[in-house]
Design a protein around this nucleic acid. Structure first.
Length: 113
RNA sequence: GGAGCUCGAAAGACAAUCGCUUUUUAAAGAGGAAAGUCCGGGCAACACAGAGUACGGUAGUCGCUAACGGCGACCGUUCGUAAGAAUAGGGAAAGUACCACAGAAACAAAACUGCCCUUCGGGGUGAUGGUGAAAAGAGUGGGGUAAGAGCCCACAGCAGGGUGUAGCGAUACGCUCUGGCGGCAAACCCUACCGGUUGCAAGGAGUGCUAUUAGCCUUGACUCGAGGACGCACGCUUACCGCUCGAGCCAUGGAGCAAUCUAUGGCCUAGAUAGAUGAUUGUCGGCCUUUUGGCUACAGAACCCGGCUUACUGAGAGCUCGUUAU
RNA sequence: GCGCCUGUGGUGGAAUUGGUAGACACGCUACCUUGAGGUGGUAGUGGCCAGAUUAACGGCUGUGCUAGUUCGAGUCUAGUCAGGCGCA
């Protein structure tokens, strides 16, 4: 689990990023990014109730994604806000390497665009 | 060996690496349902809450409990061969409403039809009518009569009054009198009992203004009573307190059929705030499969408890009824 | 966390105090009309029994699901499932 300092979640903040930020997407997840003025990277993960009904399953997805981000935290460009939105419940059961690959691709795409 | 009923422990284990939250820096860190939010309380604010009406809820008895619509024991009823299971189970003799279609008639007593008598005017009868969920709403048999009928008799059903025995009681088993007898109260209603409102998004903490008049408020019905700076504006509103020691947990003993209560000793056992309690790998368990291998339930605390209900894996224990063999 | 509402054929949407469920509209199917299609007209249309069949008659079932009350439940009661809404 990522340190609390590097997560963000407030209603206004998430909305601000969604409105102003740039989005790249794949079939399973999307990534919205925006530069911030805080001097460090912040990350949020969004899992809708429509993806998976049980709180246990959503928690598992959220934790796996946060863990994958933590493992590769150094790869993220600095001073930006990131929101990862999950679309499918496959994330809960897919191999860890595949999850890392999806996230890597997303970050690479957002860097290009 | 088969079919079934009841109870029910536990909720995979260990290791390595990398992390998260609280923090006394050394520890601790999701559940039996944390869920649904269906009830009940604590706690908080307004009178630690008052009176009456309205409105709502509950409904066998006795107990348990902080309280309950919960639980336990017992009684009645229904289902089951049984073990057992279910049970909104007060009142229809206070009143009102309703009972479609069919049927002569549907709630109150007669008309129609039938039967009997007849002086042909009428009178007697209410057991004929086959419809319906329900029809003299007292059944069966006999007597009786012009024809018939609880009109009379015997046996029997329910209800009400009185009464005896057993039981704290619901009730059970009797005796006696009455001759009262459709259903429906999960229709209105009556009776008894219970219920103030809002909820941790409660509430507390800051600054300024108004001042015992008026006004407003005491919340979401109305009236009364009693009282209050309660009022208004700004600020706070991702921060702090509330926030976890509690009707707490464990062990042993005692009381009780039990729910439960109690004595002694020990223990401190999540407190996050978009939300920590995790991720990955390996080994061993359990189940399935010829093997490779696959599967390993339901499900995530958000102020805290007591229940109920629903979801779901299930070691094991006790019991019942058939079958076969001895 | 607290409070509230709604579930009826393929779709929208009716059903007065409990009494034959599916009015009405759309859609769909078949036939007629057309060279062909559209439009228009006529008839039918919840599901199952139902298979090789125009399928009648008939039976069973059916108002999200499971029970209960009642002679009788879409309607009343309880539980449950699903969907939706409000309060910052």
């Amino acid at each position: 689990m990522l340190n609390k300092k590097y997560r963000f979640h407030s209603r206004g903040g998430v909305r601000f990023v969604f409105q102003k930020g740039k989005t790249v997407r794949t079939q399973k997840m999307s990534l919205t990014t925006l530069d911030n003025e805080r001097g460090f990277t912040r990350v949020a993960v969004v899992v809708s109730k429509k993806v998976l009904k049980t709180a246990v399953g959503r928690n598992r997805i959220r934790r796996r994604v946060y863990e994958a981000i933590r493992q590769n935290f150094e790869d993220l460009p600095e001073k930006r806000d990131y929101i990862f939105t999950v679309f499918t419940k496959d994330i809960a059961d897919m191999p860890y390497k595949d999850l890392e690959k999806i996230l890597g691709d997303l970050v690479a795409q957002s860097r290009i665009s």
